[in-house]
Design a protein around this nucleic acid. Sequence first.
DNA 1: GTCTATAAGAAGATAGAC
DNA 2: GTCTATCTTCTTATAGAC
Lengths: 206, 206
Amino acid sequence: MDTKQRILDEALTLFSEKGYANVYVADIAERVGIKAPSLYKHYKNKQAIFDAIISEMDQRFSDQAKQLQISGTDASVDADIYKNISEEQLIKIGRDLFLYFLHDDYTRRFRKMLTIEQFRDKKLATVYQQQYADMPLSYQGMLLGLMVSAGVLKTDNVEIMTLHFYAPIYMLLTICDRDPSREAASLVTLEEHIKQFDRLYGREKK
Amino acid sequence: MDTKQRILDEALTLFSEKGYANVYVADIAERVGIKAPSLYKHYKNKQAIFDAIISEMDQRFSDQAKQLQISGTDASVDADIYKNISEEQLIKIGRDLFLYFLHDDYTRRFRKMLTIEQFRDKKLATVYQQQYADMPLSYQGMLLGLMVSAGVLKTDNVEIMTLHFYAPIYMLLTICDRDPSREAASLVTLEEHIKQFDRLYGREKK
DNA sequence: GTCTATAAGAAGATAGAC
DNA sequence: GTCTATCTTCTTATAGAC
């Protein structure tokens, strides 16, 4: 990784732990292995580093959205897949979503940075909203909607059903961001959540 | 309100909007209507102001916990109340919780401050965890548990049921903190959530 | 308790050699 | 592109008069 990219990487790590204002240009430089003034050959100033992180993320997010749309289209073509989806597969969907958000290094650091900076900048609040509330709800809503169409799940309100699926995942995620030692317990809770979700909305209806 | 208290109040407002590091002692003083140096007659330094806010909150929280325990004890004595609880009453419980968290000025500002500062100080992460995850889950769990005992709701896993009740409320709360203009829509969603929760866990079981 | 003046130090950014 | 030296500005905090 070249120096310009390493600066972004180390800056993101520091911003996600301490927040923009508590990170000094010299701290970033030190982690990169250069002195502070050298950093100004790569970026105009501290704010430009922050802005570059946001731009890079915008790019990744829009790539990702494109990916999801493609797989979304595929998914609706192969709606049959969801006809016979098992409880285990539903658990896997939730668990994969959770672990991706939690463990993907870039995603995790960026989410923590947004968490810290969200009230200082309306644009950042919007990005957070889209990325961790609206987009997951809309994507999961599409998947669950297919399962409803396939007759695997039953509801007259897919939107609320999706909230019931995703909100616990989101809440467990924020819990683990604050305290990673709760990850194991959260994974157990997550699995129980989806099992119960599955029973409530479809299977094993008593 | 005396000056010493007004300092805490204005400081909390600013900290919750910009974060500790982005608030200058002079900003706080200006809002109180004094000059920065005067502020040092009331508090040793900037950190002492922050610490005083945390202490005050600790006090409020422990008072509140005591209150809940008392009403909790009362509630379990009068478990009969929950035998005939209506859907409207369940909606009211969720709505009141949501609106209290969202509109109570002190609670709202403190929550936003904790949100911003949580990754810088393990103690703050713990306070957040207790106040917005563990305590609500445990208190709501007790209420919902009583309803299960009373036969109004049915489940073999009260803990997950409680997560299903509270996680959507929590998520909608964080959404409104980021963007207050979404409050009206969130209240509609909240109501639909509880209606569906009520159907899923008890009433109108098809 | 409040003020003005000011000290002390931190942090961002630039100049210019290599 | 990286360094050392340095400038500038901002911010906390203190001194001491009123």
